[in-house]
């Protein structure tokens, strides 16, 4: 059942291929907006690059969160999953993992390309990628709580964004300053370790909290 939930997510995603690409396209487009608004000056863009990529990643994740549970909640599959003998939080954890694989991971893979387009200094690449690799799962985990809380709200998208965005602040700060530190020649160990610590905390708490929130929505009549 655990693996089944995971496979089910991928099958669903494969059947809605075009939706799958949307957050990635959005991510690239937002990144492309910044040079258009700020000017294409390399000196100006280089120090901003990591911030731009991170903000775009956060926005793209927020855009994709609403679909994490909604469809399954609406057609009752989620209720059936809750009733199965597997602990519900484990199924939720697998759903979050699948969400990250399908939206977070593509962003990480694309980020070097965008960093290059924004003239990011070459010393910063590694810390940007590692930071995103640790940070985007946190975005999915915290976002899952928000998505679970708003699953019953029609057009819950905006409420979800309002709820989740303040909670993304630490990840944004640690993630976007790591490449800046690397550009100055220091190893951004503190930032990445903090991201790691938050990831461990959220990986422990978020699936349980999201499961609790989904239950409140399923049984709240």
């Amino acid at each position: 059942m655990r693996g089944g939930a995971f496979r089910y997510e991928f099958l669903q995603a494969y059947r809605r291929r075009s939706e799958l690409v949307n957050p990635v396209v959005f991510f690239v487009m937002v990144c492309a907006m910044f040079p258009l608004a700020l000017g294409s000056n390399a000196q100006l863009l280089a120090p901003l690059a990591s911030g731009i990529v991170w903000v775009a990643a956060v926005l793209a994740t927020i855009l994709s969160l609403d679909q994490m549970f909604r469809q399954d909640f609406d057609d009752g599959i989620l209720e059936q999953m809750e009733l199965s003998e597997v602990p519900f939080y484990q199924i939720v954890a697998f759903k979050i993992l699948a969400h990250w694989c399908l939206t977070g991971l593509p962003l990480v893979i694309l980020s070097p390309l965008l960093a290059m387009m924004l003239y990011m200094p070459s010393e910063s690449y590694l810390s940007l990628i590692v930071g995103l690799l640790i940070g985007t799962p946190i975005l999915s985990l915290i976002g899952a709580i928000g998505a679970a809380l708003t699953v019953k709200i029609r057009r819950g998208n905006i409420v979800l964004a309002l709820l989740v965005m303040p909670l993304y602040v630490p990840i944004l700060i640690f993630g976007s300053t790591a490449p800046l530190m690397a550009a100055e020649g220091t190893v951004p160990a503190a930032q990445l370790l903090w991201l790691g610590a938050i990831l461990v905390l959220m990986a422990t708490l978020a699936p349980i909290t999201a499961a609790l929130s989904l239950r409140a929505n399923i049984y709240g009549s």
Binding site: I145, G156, A216
Partner: peptide
Amino acid sequence: FIYLGIISLYQSIENRDTAYKATAIACLVG
């Protein structure tokens, strides 16, 4: 901002008991 998020969450859930529970969870996450 967190306060505003919690308020908008409460106001947009129609069922009152669900709204109470959801707001409480959001508070704890906050």
